[in-house]
Computed example of a mutant assay.
Amino acid sequence: MNDLQPQTANGESDGLQLAPDSPHANFGHSVEPWKLLIVDDEEIVHAVTHLALDSFDLGGRGLEFLSAYSGAEAREVLREHNDIAVILLDVVMETDRAGLDLVHYIRHELKNKFVRIIMRTGQPGDSLEQEVITKYDINDYKEKTELTRQRLFSVVYTSLRSYSDLTALEINRKGLMKVIESSAKIFESRDISAFSEGVLEQLTGLLYLGNDAVLINASGLLARSGIERLRILAGIGKFKQCQGEVDFTNFDEEMAERIKYVLQHKKSNYGDNYWVSYYVTKSGLEQILYVSARDVFSVPDIMMIELFVKNVAIAHETIAMLEGGQ
């Protein structure tokens, strides 16, 4: 077994430990592909784009191609999919300005500021270029003839990077706002769940994690007749509806085994795409944070997760002390 022992401020080890080598230590996880919308009235453009980007991969995620052959069709697709990352958009389709009208619809009616829009024109030297760049909120303007396979790959790659950064910042912003609102009332309302949920959203956005995370209070863990129970403080993603006291049957087998391992060894552990953080306060309050990630965790990620668990545990302990003193 490999051990990683980060030091606390007083020089003591937190006992951070890798998960043991076992059938459950490393396993794959599915991630949704990036959605790319091709809007063009020429069938050949769709076919060539598919061919050029067929093996595309960013962060372990491929591409899901969506197609529209007019501005009107594109509107329908956009209404059905609110998570499209990149649009390759023709300027001239059913009208000379169909592409520009669609940009206006996306930015002003749908109020979607995140999707990256790459305008493509089949008319070299198009006089619209300067107007488009200065008056419309697009991210690039290219002639179809200059978009070789390599250049198309580069444009889509950088656009997806930008989209990923923007959406992560937005998740972090919303989480931070929720934390601010909740922390202002935390000692007044003693609502640790609302506070924890907000910080979970902030943490997962900041670390570019998958949006599945759950914060568990394991203090006073019961073990009667083989039934083990946990108290859920907050959850996001697939754990959003998981609240109150639960037993391990509420989780899948692999997740349950990871949590049991942490409780048994009193140490955090992680694998390729998950992290189970453990912290215990001076009064004996135990808390566990379970998060799933798209990529392997870095050391800065680990330190931030550990700090988060420690701060929430201390806040929870403070509330418990206030309640006990009443």
Score class of each variant (00 low, 15 high):
M1C: 11
P6V: 10
T8P: 02
A9G: 00
G11T: 03
S13T: 14
L16D: 02
A19I: 07
P20S: 09
P23W: 03
F27Y: 15
G28Q: 08
E32Y: 02
W34R: 04
K35P: 03
L37A: 04
I38R: 01
I38Q: 10
D41G: 09
I44Q: 08
I44F: 08
V45D: 05
V48G: 05
V48L: 13
L51H: 11
D54I: 07
L58H: 05
G62D: 03
F65M: 15
F65P: 09
S70Y: 12
G71E: 04
A72K: 13
A74C: 07
V77H: 07
V77N: 05
V77Y: 07
D90H: 03
D90V: 02
T95Y: 06
G99S: 08
D101L: 01
Y105I: 10
E109H: 15
L110D: 09
L110V: 08
R120F: 02
G122I: 00
P124G: 05
G125F: 04
E131I: 00
I133D: 08
Y136H: 08
Y136G: 05
Y141G: 07
K142G: 02
E143I: 01
T145P: 00
T148A: 01
Q150R: 11
F153P: 01
S154I: 01
S154Y: 02
V155Y: 03
V156A: 01
T158N: 06
T158P: 00
S159R: 02
L160G: 04
R161M: 13
S164E: 14
L166P: 01
T167W: 00
L169K: 08
I171P: 01
N172A: 12
G175V: 05
I180S: 11
E181W: 09
S183Y: 14
I186W: 06
R190T: 11
I192N: 06
A194N: 10
S196Q: 06
T204N: 05
L206W: 03
Y208R: 10
G210E: 11
G210V: 00
D212K: 03
L215T: 07
I216W: 10
I216M: 12
A218Y: 12
L222N: 12
S225H: 09
E228F: 11
A234L: 13
G235S: 07
G237Q: 04
G237W: 04
K238Y: 08
K238C: 08
Q241R: 13
C242Y: 06
Q243E: 12
E245K: 07
T249Y: 04
N250A: 14
E254G: 11
E254L: 14
E257S: 13
E257V: 05
I259M: 13
K260I: 08
K260V: 06
H265V: 08
N273Q: 08
Y279C: 02
T281N: 12
T281M: 05
S283E: 15
S283K: 13
G284N: 11
L285I: 14
L285N: 14
Q287C: 15
V291P: 02
S292Y: 09
A293E: 02
A293I: 00
S298W: 03
S298V: 00
P300G: 01
P300V: 01
M304A: 08
M304T: 12
I305M: 10
F308S: 06
N311S: 10
A313M: 09
A313W: 10
A313D: 09
A313K: 11
I314N: 11
A315I: 11
H316P: 02
E317Y: 06
E317I: 04
L322Y: 10
G324S: 15
Q326L: 09
